[in-house]
Deep mutational scan, measured.
Amino acid sequence: GAPPLPPYSAGGREVTMKKGDILTLLNSTNKDWWKVEVNDRQGFVPAAYVKKLDSGTGKELVLALYDYQEK
């Protein structure tokens, strides 16, 4: 199953993602919540729920390892 959710501390809205989604990583300075862009929406997802990909394009991409439903 998915890892436990860290307390929400990102101070911005969250976004929903599905397992297998490829998201653009915008900011990973917060260790628990990373800012991503998905379907032209920006928001935060739990860092433990995604994995960085080596895209080779200069853009940082992450793979959704679990479904996440915004609150």
Results as ranks from 00 to 15, higher is better:
Lys35Glu: 13
Asp67Lys: 03
Met17Pro: 00
Leu25Ala: 02
Leu25Ile: 06
Asp54Thr: 12
Gly12Ile: 08
Lys59Pro: 14
Pro6Ser: 02
Asn27Ile: 07
Lys19Tyr: 04
Val62Thr: 02
Glu14Ile: 13
Asp32His: 14
Gly12Val: 07
Glu60Val: 15
Ala48Asp: 07
Lys59Glu: 12
Val50Pro: 01
Pro46Phe: 03
Asn27Ala: 07
Leu65His: 02
Pro46Met: 02
Pro3Cys: 05
Thr24Ile: 14
Asp67Cys: 04
Gly43Cys: 04
Gly1Met: 09
Gln69His: 14
Lys31Cys: 07
Gln69Gly: 14
Asp40Val: 06
Gly20Val: 00
Asp21Leu: 04
Val45Arg: 00
Asp54Met: 11
Ser9Glu: 09
Pro6Tyr: 03
Gln69Tyr: 15
Glu14His: 15
Gly43Tyr: 07
Tyr49His: 03
Thr29Asp: 15
Ala10Gly: 08
Arg41Pro: 00
Leu5Pro: 10
Gly11Tyr: 03
Leu25Glu: 00
Gln42Glu: 13
Val15Gln: 05
Asn27Gly: 05
Leu65Pro: 00
Leu5Ile: 13
Ala47Asn: 02
Leu61Trp: 11
Leu26Asn: 03
Tyr66Asn: 04
Leu5Asp: 06
Lys31Tyr: 07
Thr16Gln: 08
Val45Met: 01
Asp40Lys: 11
Leu61Cys: 06
Leu53Gln: 04
Thr29Asn: 14
Asn30Ile: 04
Ser9Gln: 12
Thr24Cys: 07
Trp33Gln: 01
Gly58Trp: 08
Gly56Asn: 13
Leu26Pro: 00
Ala64Thr: 03
Leu26Phe: 04
Phe44Arg: 02
Ser55Val: 13
Thr29Trp: 08
Trp34Met: 03
Lys52Phe: 08
Gly56Phe: 11
Gln42Asp: 09
Trp33Asn: 00
Asp21Cys: 05
Gly20Cys: 04
Pro4Ser: 09
Ala2Pro: 15
Ala10Val: 10
Glu60Thr: 14
Arg13Asn: 14
Thr16Leu: 06
Lys51Asp: 05
Val15Gly: 03
Thr16Asn: 11
Asp32Leu: 10
Leu5Lys: 08
Arg41Trp: 06
Val50Gly: 01
Val15Leu: 15
Gly1Phe: 07
Trp33Tyr: 04
Asn39Lys: 12
Pro4Cys: 07
Arg41Gly: 11
Asp40Asn: 15
Lys31Ala: 13
Tyr8Pro: 07
Glu70Ala: 15
Asp40Met: 11
Arg13Tyr: 14
Leu25Pro: 00
Val36Ile: 06
Glu60Lys: 10
Leu25Asp: 00
Lys19Val: 08
Lys59Gly: 09
Tyr8Asp: 09
Leu65Phe: 03
Ala10Ser: 15
Ser9Phe: 10
Ile22Asp: 00
Asn39Gln: 11
Pro7Leu: 07
Ala64Ile: 02
Thr57Ser: 15
Pro46Cys: 03
Leu23Ala: 08
Val36Trp: 00
Met17Phe: 10
Arg41Ile: 15
Lys18Gln: 07
Asp54Phe: 12
Leu61Gln: 12
Leu53Lys: 03
Lys71Gly: 15
Thr57Trp: 11
Gly1Pro: 14
Trp34Val: 04
Glu70Gln: 13
Asn30Cys: 08
Lys59Trp: 09
Gly1Leu: 08
Lys71Trp: 12
Trp34Ser: 01
Tyr8Gly: 12
Leu26Asp: 01
Pro7His: 11
Gly56Leu: 14
Asn39Gly: 15
Tyr66Cys: 04
Tyr8Thr: 15
Asp54Ala: 11
Ile22Glu: 03
Glu70Asn: 10
Met17Trp: 03
Pro3Ser: 05
Val62Lys: 00
Gly11Ala: 14
Tyr66Gly: 02
Thr16Tyr: 12
Asp54Cys: 10
Arg13Phe: 10
Gly20Met: 03
Thr16Glu: 07
Asp67Trp: 03
Trp34Ala: 02
Tyr49Ile: 03
Glu60Trp: 10
Leu53His: 05
Ser9Leu: 11
Pro4His: 07
Ala64Leu: 03
Ser55Cys: 11
Leu23Glu: 00
Gly43Arg: 03
Ala64Asp: 00
Asn30Pro: 04
Arg41Cys: 08
Ala64Val: 08
Phe44Cys: 07
Ile22Leu: 08
Gln69Val: 13
Asn39Pro: 05
Asp67Met: 03
Ala2Ser: 10
Lys52Leu: 13
Ala64Asn: 00
Asp21Glu: 13
Val45Gly: 00
Lys35Gln: 11
Met17Tyr: 02
Pro4Thr: 09
Phe44Tyr: 14
Val15Pro: 02
Tyr49Ser: 03
Glu14Lys: 11
Gly20Pro: 00
Gln42Leu: 06
Lys35Ala: 07
Pro4Asn: 08
Leu23Val: 05
Asp40Cys: 12
Val50Glu: 00
Gly58Ser: 11
Leu53Pro: 00
Asp54Ser: 13
Glu37Lys: 09
Gly58Phe: 09
Ala48Ser: 13
Lys18Gly: 04
Gly11Arg: 07
Gly58Ala: 11
Ala64His: 00
Gly58Gln: 08
Ala2Thr: 11
Met17Gln: 01
Val15Cys: 09
Ala10Leu: 13
Lys35Asp: 04
Gly1Arg: 06
Ala64Met: 03
Val45Leu: 02
Met17Asn: 00
Lys71Arg: 15
Leu26Thr: 04
Asn27Trp: 06
Gly1Glu: 15
Tyr49Cys: 03
Leu5His: 07
Leu23Thr: 01
Gln69Met: 09
Gly20Asp: 05
Leu53Ala: 03
Lys18Thr: 08
Gly43Trp: 06
Asn27Glu: 14
Ser28Met: 10
Val36Gly: 00
Lys51Gly: 06
Met17Gly: 00
Arg13Leu: 13
Glu14Pro: 15
Arg13His: 14
Ser28Leu: 04
Val38Arg: 15
Asn27Phe: 06
Ala10Met: 15
Pro7Ala: 10
Glu37Gln: 13
Lys19Ala: 13
Thr24Gly: 06
Glu14Thr: 15
Pro6Phe: 02
Lys71Gln: 15
Ile22Gly: 00
Trp33Lys: 00
Leu53Gly: 03
Gly1Trp: 08
Ala2Tyr: 11
Tyr68Leu: 04
Asp32Met: 11
Ala48Tyr: 05
Gly12Asp: 07
Val38His: 15
Val38Pro: 00
Leu23Lys: 01
Glu70Trp: 09
Ser28Tyr: 07
Tyr49Pro: 00
Lys19Leu: 05
Gly11Gln: 13
Val50Thr: 04
Leu5Val: 09
Thr24Leu: 15
Tyr68Phe: 15
Tyr68Gly: 00
Gly56Thr: 14
Gly12His: 09
Leu65Lys: 04
Lys31Glu: 10
Val50Arg: 00
Thr24Lys: 11
Ala64Trp: 01
Leu63Ile: 15
Ser9Tyr: 09
Val38Met: 14
Lys19Gln: 09
Pro4Lys: 08
Asn39Cys: 10
Gln69Arg: 10
Tyr49Phe: 10
Asp21Arg: 03
Arg13Met: 13
Leu53Thr: 05
Phe44Asp: 02
Leu63Trp: 05
Pro46Ser: 01
Ile22Met: 06
Pro7Thr: 05
Thr57Arg: 09
Met17Ser: 00
Pro4Ile: 08
Ala47Ser: 14
Asp54Asn: 12
Asn30Tyr: 05
Val45Thr: 02
Asp67Arg: 02
Val15Ala: 05
Val38Lys: 15
Gly1His: 13
Val45Lys: 00
Val45Trp: 01
Thr29Met: 11
Arg41Tyr: 09
Ser55Arg: 08
Lys52Gly: 04
Gly11Glu: 13
Leu63Arg: 08
Gly11Thr: 12
Glu14Gln: 15
Pro46Lys: 02
Gly56Ser: 14
Phe44Ala: 02
Asn30Gln: 10
Arg41Leu: 13
Gly43Val: 06
Thr24Tyr: 10
Pro46Glu: 00
Arg13Ile: 11
Thr24Val: 15
Val15Ser: 03
Pro3Ile: 06
Ser55Phe: 11
Tyr8Lys: 08
Lys52Ala: 07
